[in-house]
Design a protein around this nucleic acid. Structure first.
Lengths: 203, 203
DNA sequence: GTCTATAAGCTGATAGAC
DNA sequence: GTCTATCAGCTTATAGAC
């Protein structure tokens, strides 16, 4: 008998995951801000009121997607697991690929397309881990003598974040349908470590 | 008698401009995608149907704003009118300031926040002039021996566009309320010509 | 947990009198 | 050119029966 609540919780979690998947589909078709609870309910095959048993509001759906997105992006940039400047390049490329494969989530994470929605602190937490991941890679590259120590300064980190945001932002806005390989701007991503090293050459 | 149609046309153009101004206010408050014709009409003090005498659809309002934005941004980057690498820096800074001062228009221009809206070819035309403006500045810097000739290649232009898009995108998403001077990312803009020159040093 | 029913209000857009 | 009236439909969200 004790496992029945577990099964219920599992079913519930599965339904919630299904709802988030449908929500992503709707956002891909109608725009990130065009998410409608009624549309999601229709596609899931339930009535709109029943949806509110799983998510108390539309914003709660956005918040869950925001968290899922942050965790997906964090996992992507952590994936390569190589050290130093080479590791930075691998992380940037993995992150760029994840963004091109998850454009809707990326818009939710990196732009502000939904009026009135701000992520909850819990959902925002992985963003800090992402920042720390790149900071650690840069510190590692500095200690290996691949970069000038100033690269690990606040300005250096801001520049690194901007270097990756640039091509990604251009690609999403101008050629959203291109693959990572085809993209006129994603093609620049492998060059970014060299750009960064040119700005902060080792002493 | 012949001037009466002119006066009518002028009044009409004034009303249209007023409508676009109100639309910008609404978008600033409700999000770019949250523009509502009824809200604009209410604030202008007319009934919603009357609005359709000035703009045939909601998309037409977006299109007019898109064009106004492109022209404003073009005027901003053309403003400095200095040559070479120094001129590139001045244009980038002027463009970044314009964007921070016109964030709603910038979102419409550089992101894709409105599902189903694509600018008409006429409204998109100034974008080509903007591209050509920066291409000419880079060619000029090359001919002055400030940059390697490769800077004027397609990849070089894409990199230049990405270098400016990066800090701007980060600033808008992470610290939209900061001024140009305060911003953690806009602060990087004056360094961008040097970054570009470090990637394409003269031979 | 899902349903019916419904609230309360919004939307973009149009017809036709004045 | 602006108005009233209205269409046809949508929205988020809730109450309460089953």
């Amino acid at each position: 008998m004790a496992d029945i609540p577990d099964r219920r919780a599992r079913r519930r979690a599965e339904t919630q995951a299904e709802i988030l998947g449908i929500a992503l589909d709707v956002m891909a078709e109608e725009g990130v801000a065009g998410l409608s609870m009624a549309t999601v309910a229709r596609r899931l095959g339930i009535r709109p009121p029943s949806l509110y048993k799983y998510f108390p509001s539309r914003h709660a759906v956005y918040d869950a997607l925001f968290e899922r997105g942050q965790e997906g992006y964090l996992a992507a940039v952590r994936g390569p697991g190589q050290p130093g400047l080479r590791g930075m390049g691998a992380s940037l490329e993995a992150g760029a690929r994840w963004i091109m494969d998850n454009q809707v989530l990326a818009q939710l994470l990196f732009w502000r397309p939904v009026p009135g929605f701000s992520p909850s602190p819990e959902s925002y937490a992985p963003a800090l881990a992402i920042h720390e991941h790149f900071a650690a890679l840069i510190r590692d590259a500095v200690s290996r003598g691949e970069l000038h120590p100033d690269a690990a300064s606040e300005d250096g980190l801001a520049l690194a974040a901007s270097l990756i945001a640039g091509p990604i932002s251009q690609q999403l806005a101008n050629e959203p349908d291109a693959t990572y390989e085809e993209g006129r701007f994603t093609r620049l991503v492998p060059r970014l470590p060299a750009v960064f090293a040119a700005v902060y050459p080792p002493p």
